[in-house]
Structures are given as C-alpha cells and as structure tokens.
C-alpha cells in the first residue's frame, strides 16, 4: 500500500510527533508514504477567498494524481478541505475549467482520480481492525480514553463520507483495539475550539474547557485525537492557559498514532511522546 502523505502546514513546526508517529505506525503495516511538493490544503483561506482555497486543494490533489496515488492525511481539517474542494470541482464545471487552466501553468490537471482518505479510515478499512488487533503487543488495559472526533472529518457527511455523522464508531473501534477503554461522553462530537484560536480566544477556550470537563466527568484519563488542530488545542493551548482551578482539571491529550504505537511496542522516540507538552507519562502507559 502506498499513499501520498499530506501532512498539512502545522505538523512540521508545531506537531512533529504526529508526522513521525504516523510514519512509524504505518510502516509496520507496510504502508509506504510519499511526500510530494504539497502546499496548504486551502482550509485557512476558505474564510477569505473561495477560489484560492479551491486552487490550493486542487493543486495538491493534482500532484497526487500525477503520481497515481491516493492521498492520506492525518489532519481532519486538511481532510475536510480537500474533500470539499473535490466536491466543488466535481459538481461545478465552470470552476473546474478555470482551476484547471490555472493548474495547467505548472503542468498539472485535476481529474478527480485521486481519493482523499483520513488516517483513521486507512487504519480501519484499508489495513483493517483484525490486522491492528494482531499487531498489539502491549495492550493498554485500564486506560479510559475519550475519543475526540473532530468536526471537519465528520460533517457535512454528504461531502466527507467519513462515518455516521450522528453516531460514529470508527474512533472507538480503533481505540478498543489498543486495549484501552473508550468512554462514552456526551460532547464527543463537538468542536475543540481551535478554529477560533487567535480570532476569538474566549470562545475558543470556552469550547475547549466544556469538552475537557465533560471528558473528565465521564471518567476519561485522557483525550485522544486524530487531527493536528484538535491536538494543538488540547495540548499546547490547554497547557498555555493552565489555571490552578481544581474544578477544571488538566487532561492530557494523546494522538491516536501515539496510543496505537505504544500498544504496538514501538519506541517512544519515534512516537515523539516527550514532545507532548502536557506529559502523558502519568497515564502509566509509557
């Protein structure tokens, strides 16, 4: 199995461990990842200028198409952005024509032949749960994990086709495979707040804190994410606004690839465990 690995903009500087742990985990399943000359997925610019968002996303898909590869991205915002652009290009002929005219200047064309997949889908469907169960050498028994779904992979379901938008289960299934126990929590499908970070920090933090409190009350030891932005929100940003308020406890957040990697017995260094700002050591799984 081989994919074009779409890391997105934030992993190289802000969340290296997501890139390295994804590579480490997928390597053991024989998945090869190829990094192309990708640009931004277009998501941050969709707020300001529709056409630039579509061109950015289309360029990335066209690059993968040229190599005859499907795209794998570990980031849910990149995933949503690419899927949306795919949808718009597919349904709007005039848009497709104009974007392709722009792409042609660098010898690219978007035909819609490359599929965009999120990391969790590749793990669950392409590699398959049986193979994942078989790879576990250190089951993480006793750990209660709150699966945070991430909005942009889940909704709108008619465009992203990720899982059932109202009752998804893919993330819990994957967490169960590691031996950890996924907890049920009412706010699992809510937004992490990161899209508003830097734009309206009060609301961004309110959204984050509501979720953390909910996960905590539901008995979770940690939150588990499979999205660059969600992880940044629950790790770097949560720790940067740390308060000593006992009512709003700090809850560590772990990337799914780190969780899976640990249960597969992969070396900590590759998983970048120490790079997490809120230490996950106290979970006693490392």
């Amino acid at each position: 199995m081989k994919f074009a690995f779409f890391k997105g903009c934030k992993i190289p500087y802000y969340l290296e461990q997501y890139g390295s742990s994804t590579r480490a985990v997928l390597k053991t399943f024989g998945v090869r990842l190829l990094e192309l000359d990708f640009c931004c997925c277009g998501y941050p610019n969709r707020d300001l200028h529709f056409e630039s968002f579509v061109l950015s996303a289309a360029r990335n898909m066209a690059l993968a198409e040229k190599k005859n590869l499907d795209i794998l991205t570990p980031c849910k915002c990149c995933y949503g952005s690419l899927k949306h652009a795919f949808h718009f290009l597919h349904e709007n002929e005039r848009l497709r024509r104009d974007i392709n005219a722009e792409l042609a200047k660098e010898g690219l064309v978007w035909k819609g032949k490359s599929t965009v997949k999120h990391l969790l889908t590749v793990l669950c469907d392409d590699i398959g749960l049986p193979a994942i169960y078989a790879s576990i050498v250190k089951p993480l028994g006793g750990l209660s994990v709150a699966a945070h779904y991430g909005c942009h992979a889940l909704r709108p379901s008619n465009i992203v086709h990720f899982d059932d938008p109202l009752a998804p289960s893919i993330f819990e299934d994957l967490i169960s495979a590691t031996g950890a126990k996924p907890v049920g929590w009412p706010r699992r499908l809510d937004c992490c707040g990161n899209p508003l970070w830097g734009k309206n920090n009060a609301i961004s933090l309110a959204l984050m804190r509501t979720k953390i409190a909910d996960a905590y009350e539901s008995g979770a030891d940690c939150i588990c994410t499979a999205c660059t932005y969600c992880q940044l929100q629950f790790d770097a940003i949560q720790s940067s606004v740390k308060t000593d308020n006992a009512a709003s406890p700090e809850l560590p957040s772990i990337l799914y690839t780190q969780l899976l990697g640990l249960s597969m017995g992969l070396p900590e260094r590759l998983l970048g465990i120490k790079r997490n700002i809120i230490p996950v050591e106290k979970l006693k799984i490392v």
Binding site: D47, C151, H152, R155, P156, D190, C191, G193
Partner: peptide
Amino acid sequence: DCTTCYQCQENCPQGIKVTDIIY
C-alpha cells in the same frame, strides 16, 4: 465567530447549507 463545525448544516431539517452560507 463561526467555528465551521458544520453542526447547523448537518442538523438542518430543511437541508439548508447554513455553514456554506456563512462561509
């Protein structure tokens, strides 16, 4: 201040593209 979480669009009983409109 929209987080673009698409809850409104996903849940609209009339199928209105609320988030896309906000975008």
